[in-house]
Design a protein around this nucleic acid. Structure first.
Lengths: 123, 123
DNA sequence: CCCATAGTTCGTAACATACGAACTCATGAA
DNA sequence: TTCATGAGTTCGTATGTTACGAACTATGGG
């Protein structure tokens, strides 16, 4: 089992981020992580998302995609995995990108957030 | 030859936009169109982009991808094609999304724009 | 009508993705 | 230490997507 690889902040690309978040399952995972930061962030917490039941091998691949795009950081916590977003780093490198995407996603889901408190604006 | 299809603004999805712009060639095309709005926007203008030479069948597919994602509008102008971005419409539906993406892309390309005048902030 | 130019579509090879089966790793019980 | 269990990963394969050359369609000019 190869050790988890995380790209350095400078190797993170816009294309990579967009591609990772262009998958509906992955945005949902990412949105969950971004909301419940630090809470129940193990992979298994997503085994039964709202409506669909996603097989765990597929979930594992999705987490890997998010990880290799630089969107999340995963570390072992005993038998589980602790997943956290790297939004602070990405905000440094690409200010406003993630908030804008998540905001648009919220609009599309019919639950537009109130104007985000600490986001959106270019750093 | 089927007539060009453009999704209605309500059928445009965030995932579709992100996927379309997650391809390096397509962002470059889109960026060009967004900059030189109305100028030389035919497909053939992109036949020899900066470094790579992209075959025209491939280019055609890229334009179709952008069109079907709702990012551009294409109409015949005689023998050519006039391509224009639909950024105003998209700005209505997903405020700040495209500016943030293009801004991030500019940063990555090493030419960060000055803080965008009318963008970024959550309407 | 014939030709040239601008794009599109088709066919196929290369690449990417989804998911079940089989695996690894950490932990806890015996 | 050994075995069992739960959490994730990797592999193999079927299915989908993408790239690009060849053949096609449309428009405009002689």
């Amino acid at each position: 089992m190869r050790p988890l690889t995380h790209p350095s902040i400078d190797d993170i690309t816009v294309e990579g981020i967009l591609h990772a978040l262009s998958d509906p399952v992955r945005v949902r995972i990412y949105a969950q992580l971004a909301c419940a930061e630090g809470a129940n962030s193990s992979c298994s917490a997503f085994l039964q998302m709202e409506d669909r039941c996603i097989p765990k091998s597929t979930l594992s691949q999705h987490f890997r995609a998010l990880r290799e795009a630089g969107l999340i950081r995963s570390e072992r916590r005993g038998v589980e995995m602790l997943n956290t977003t790297r939004c602070d780093e990405i905000q440094q490198r690409f200010p406003g990108l993630l908030p804008a995407i998540m905001h648009a996603h919220a609009i599309q889901s019919g639950k537009p957030l109130p104007p985000d408190p600490e986001d959106q604006s270019s750093d």
